[in-house]
Nucleic acid binder design. Sequence first.
DNA 1: CCTCTCATGTAAGACGTTACATGATTCA
DNA 2: TGAATCATGTAACGTCTTACATGAGAGG
Lengths: 187, 187
Amino acid sequence: MSVRHAILGLLHYQDMHGYRIKRHMEQHFGHMWSINYGQIYPNLKKMEEQGLVTKKEVARAGTPSRKLYSITAAGKEAFAEWLVSDPHGTMLLRDPFLLRFVFFGFGSKDRALKLVDEQIALYETQLEKRRENMRRWQRQGIYVRQMGELGLLLNEMVLDWLKRSRKEIAESADGEVPNQLMELSLD
Amino acid sequence: MSVRHAILGLLHYQDMHGYRIKRHMEQHFGHMWSINYGQIYPNLKKMEEQGLVTKKEVARAGTPSRKLYSITAAGKEAFAEWLVSDPHGTMLLRDPFLLRFVFFGFGSKDRALKLVDEQIALYETQLEKRRENMRRWQRQGIYVRQMGELGLLLNEMVLDWLKRSRKEIAESADGEVPNQLMELSLD
DNA sequence: CCTCTCATGTAAGACGTTACATGATTCA
DNA sequence: TGAATCATGTAACGTCTTACATGAGAGG
């Protein structure tokens, strides 16, 4: 499970508690993964049972006591194994927008344009955020910086693609979209 | 649920049975999504119960009878609604390799290079496949073709990125990777 | 006073993957 | 004879999301 290993990775840097782990992941890997408490707390618990991490409760007046987790030798070993395990194939773009995009031919051109525009706006906002983050990533070593660069490249590429698609859709007559029924029935 | 809507989309083209749906998705959207029988058959069943599709059993001597599904008016309506529903944010690159990549600083440089090389080989193989598929997508209307182009662009971009990263990793001294512990502890 | 951030957690359900079971036909 | 393809399905498990419950402190 990736979430588990990501946590073990972070604990190499320093001891952390759940809330902090979530914030950190969102700030550093937010453009690649999502994460939530429903994953973090149960996984920390399980990893403690497995001896991959240890818990140290730091009581503080008032607020719920922080639970600081540290990685153990066994945890480091498990992490090291995972780090060099074999590749699992190429990236999938399991993106709900893209899936809808493929079927835009069944809706009206206007609707398609509207949805593409919304998506363009989204990517433009995100591009700015990523450019800001880039400054932070720059100082974090080769690998973190490279990951950030990939995120930026991807964002720019998708944005360009959306704009080109938009243009082509706008220029096509509404009926110009070929009837895909015939084509697809060939296989 | 996306799988359900993807199936409804395909049924716009023509009636299909489960096996065929899987094959079709793998051939046309294989670079973006994965799918398996554990999703298809239960979902077809459920959609039939909901009146989104109807089943017609076509008995054939010997082999298990094919179950041809057709989309109903209600199904088309549900699909049309989904098609114009609001965007859900930007793409996530939930890729196991990338997650490991970020932590390569904790392993040796040689291991990192080996893993990057394996990934490069994977993407090169896939790039060829996608170039072949492009011919098929070309004839399927704007949207399918654009999706195919995005897949190609993404593949080329990641491949370039991997090669550039490889070079930079190779040129870095093994100890040159900054100690990320200090940097990260700042937030 | 109200909202935001800090902080921990659970429960239910949605979604996805893997492995298995079955069996005929086609092709080498 | 053996492997691949066609064809349908289930069970178990793993993973992820959403919503909820709780409560203190800080700042406007």
